[in-house]
Design a protein around this nucleic acid. Structure first.
Length: 428
RNA sequence: GUGGGGGUGCCCUAGCCCGGUAGGGGGCUGGCCUGCUAAGCCAGUGGCUCCAAAAGAGCCUCGCGGGUUCAAAUCCCGCCCCCCACGCCA
């Protein structure tokens, strides 16, 4: 949610930002009008409340000394009526303002490229040497088939399409990837958390775009709960309605959780295998920091993800997501895309966003430079995948496959795999 | 799930039965006092509005939402959360 006080101070900044998003800059003026109207009502309401408080006290005193209070009662009555009308108008205007602000997207950073589609994303840097020229390279679905380490048919039987069952060494590999990422982030000072996998609507609204409720999120029937789409969602809520001590910022969390996604609107895309599924595991980085720190933190988060994929030896590139592909919550987003040899394409495995003060405004997360400093300021929040394990498994299977149908496990994972260094076809 | 007890400002707590300016203690910050420290004393300690700003004034805040009333922390209704016991349970 955009900050109305900042909008009052620097409306042009917001007009420019909304224009870049393809929205009318007059939306800013609409907000400022509503804001002015709201404050006019508020002032009047406060005056009447003051009058009410004064009479109320006089009335209490008069009653004590046995004086006649009928004229006071009469005035209170008319005052109460007038107040009720004004308060209702105030509520209406406030709600309208809130709704308008709530639905405006975040202001993009200057470095976000223009453009509408994937092709307009800007490659920031690349790493590693993609396998391109080999014959007979298999995609992950075929490799899984030969290894016999996943059962997609049984998963479809018990849960439907876009589910999977991992088996044996693949279970170990999945857990190894999680441990590997957690250890790296723990060494970097991140606080490890395993959050709730379902959260209340109020928190979810603070973190995601309205559209996500329809396209991405599962609702728990009969409860005010939604399954999380990523650990970002619960972690963002950890400090809701708090004023943090600025000396302790940045606060860095590494969350591990399953992620649940409806994938509505993804019909026909990546229908086979375990690349696009309704449930997967992910280790997520999340940062609460001061505005002055957030752009450096954003770079640090993508570098952490790169460190992980470099250690795994998976060729990737980092792209700066263009205006048209940037969701409404983020001010800037990097994706890390890993090379998939069978598709001969880079595919998204990591998404790294600086949401500036957008989520913080919705969730009421502020900080104070030091205790007893009066002014508070909204924090900036950032999130980035550290590792999405199922997609990483896909990448490992395709990039580490050998001619004999076996798949090497990246060396950095060996400490976590109980001595398994290679996945071999079942029939061998 | 049942029974009981709770939720009051940064923390603890009084007030609730019996409606009328939310009181006390602690912590912290600043000041006074003081060889130093401690103690003591004074003030401040959430959100918002008016105001160019400062100063000042006011409004709101007793878990949340309704209701009754001239007036609600207090009375009534609904909901949420925490603690204890019992029950159920991986």
């Amino acid at each position: 949610m955009l900050n109305i006080r900042k909008m009052r101070q620097d409306p042009d900044f917001f007009r420019r930002g909304l224009s870049r998003r393809g929205l009318s800059p007059s939306l800013v003026d609409r907000c400022l009008e509503l804001d002015a109207e709201r404050r006019r009502y508020l002032t009047r309401v406060q005056e009447l409340r003051h009058r009410r408080n004064v009479i109320s006290q006089e009335l209490a005193a008069a009653k004590k000394s046995g004086k006649d209070v009928s004229s006071m009662l009469a005035e209170m009555k008319t005052l109460a009526d007038e107040l009720e009308t004004l308060e209702r108008r105030l509520d209406e205007v406030s709600e309208e303002l809130h709704k308008t602000l709530f639905n405006l997207p975040n202001i993009p950073h200057d470095s976000v490229p223009d453009g509408r589609s994937e092709e307009d994303n800007v490659v920031v840097r690349s790493w590693g040497n993609p396998r391109t020229d080999e014959e007979g390279i298999m995609d992950h679905v075929d490799i899984l088939q030969r290894l016999g380490l996943a059962d997609l048919e049984a998963a479809a039987k018990i849960a439907g399409a876009r589910f999977y069952i991992l088996k044996d060494e693949l279970v170990i590999l999945n857990l190894a990837l999680i441990r590997f990422a957690l250890d790296i982030l723990s060494r970097k000072g991140f606080t490890l958390v395993q959050p709730p996998y379902m959260i209340q609507r109020r928190i979810m609204e603070g973190v995601v775009a309205f559209q996500d409720f329809q396209d991405m999120l599962y609702k728990v029937e009969g409860e005010d709960l939604y399954l999380i789409g990523t650990a970002e969602h619960p972690i963002a809520g950890i400090h809701a309605d708090e004023v943090l001590d600025g000396r302790l910022l940045p606060l860095r969390y590494a969350g591990v959780s399953p992620c649940f996604r409806r994938e509505a609107g993804a019909h026909g895309k990546d229908t086979k295998g375990i690349f696009r599924v309704h449930q997967f595991e992910k280790v997520e980085q999340f940062v609460f920091c001061k505005p002055s720190q957030s752009w450096a933190e954003h770079e640090a988060l993508i570098r952490n993800a790169e460190e992980i994929y470099q250690a795994l030896g998976l060729p990737y590139r980092v792209v700066n997501i263009c205006m048209g592909e940037l969701g409404p919550i983020a001010a800037k987003k990097y994706d890390l895309e890993v090379w998939m040899p069978a598709q001969k394409k880079y595919r998204e495995l990591v998404s790294c966003s600086n949401c500036t003060d957008y989520q913080a405004n919705r969730l009421g997360i502020r900080y104070r430079e030091e205790p007893h400093v009066e002014e508070t300021e909204y924090v900036h929040t950032l999130n980035s995948t550290a590792i999405a394990t199922e997609r990483t498994i896909v990448a490992i299977l395709e990039n580490y496959q050998r001619r004999d149908g076996s798949v090497d496990i990246p060396e950095v994972l060996h400490p976590y795999t109980n001595g398994v260094t290679r996945l071999k076809p079942r029939n061998q």
